Computed example of a mutant assay.
Amino acid sequence: MLKILNATVLTLNINGEDRKIIAEPSDILLHTLRKELGLTSVKPGCENGDCGACTVLVDGWPIKACLMLTVEAVGKKILTVEGLKDAPIQKAFVENWGFQCGYCTSGFLMVCHALSNIHPNANDYVIQEWLQSNLCRCTGYEEIENAIKSILNSEV
């Protein structure tokens, strides 16, 4: 059943490409990215902003897609894991075993990618502060911290 009440055609800049979608005012970015655009790296977890599995970058800053309305994304640059295109943090996660089951990995990749761009000289305190925005139930975060540190150290 197609439900279009107050739907509007919107143009979103996703991973450097303008994409037209139809959205209602109440649609959240998480569902739009997954269902309308097929970007499944954006994971639904808690859907209330606690876990960070749905983290994307909005104009370079990590945002939880479950907390953002789709209409709020108009005019902004949205980046998902699909748009990272072999960014150094992806290789660092593999080399440092920064994942286990992988469900939270996309959100952590986005946070760490943003951290490396915004705070390229981040110390342990800043890294831990940034990583607090995401939850992983499989690991103790040491491998994730090692991955981001390997990127920061190589860029300094």
Rank of each mutant, 00 (worst) to 15 (best):
Q132A: 14
K20E: 14
A65G: 05
E72P: 04
N15L: 06
A65F: 06
I144A: 07
G49P: 03
V126D: 02
V42D: 00
G98D: 03
I127F: 09
P88H: 12
E17W: 12
D18E: 14
G75N: 11
Q132Y: 12
E36Y: 11
K91D: 12
K20F: 10
F93L: 08
I22K: 11
N15F: 07
S26D: 13
K64Y: 15
V126C: 04
G60E: 04
A147E: 01
A23P: 00
L109A: 03
E36W: 06
I63A: 15
P120Y: 12
C112F: 07
I22N: 07
I127M: 10
N96G: 07
K77R: 14
L67A: 08
I127E: 04
V58C: 10
E72T: 12
F108H: 05
K77G: 05
G38D: 07
C54M: 09
A147R: 02
I78R: 05
C104F: 08
G60L: 07
G83R: 06
K76V: 06
V71R: 15
R34W: 01
C66E: 00
T139W: 08
D86W: 12
T105K: 05
F99V: 09
M68W: 11
L135Y: 09
L5S: 15
E129G: 06
G49K: 06
V9N: 08
E145W: 09
C138N: 13
N121A: 08
I21Q: 04
K91F: 11
P120F: 12
A53Y: 02
G83K: 08
N15S: 11
V58D: 06
E145R: 10
C104R: 04
Y103F: 15
T11P: 01
Q128R: 15
S41I: 01
L57S: 11
S150R: 08
E24N: 04
L67N: 13
E82W: 10
R137Q: 10
A92H: 02
N13V: 06
S106C: 08
G83M: 06
I14G: 00
D124C: 05
A114W: 02
R19I: 10
L39V: 01
R19S: 10
D18P: 15
G38W: 12
A53H: 00
V58G: 07
W130I: 01
A114N: 05
A87W: 13
V74W: 15
V74I: 15
I28W: 04
L131W: 10
A92L: 05
L12K: 02
F108A: 03
G60N: 06
E47I: 04
K149L: 05
E155S: 15
C54A: 09
E36P: 01
G45D: 01
L57P: 03
I144R: 02
L33S: 02
R19G: 03
C138Y: 14
A122P: 01
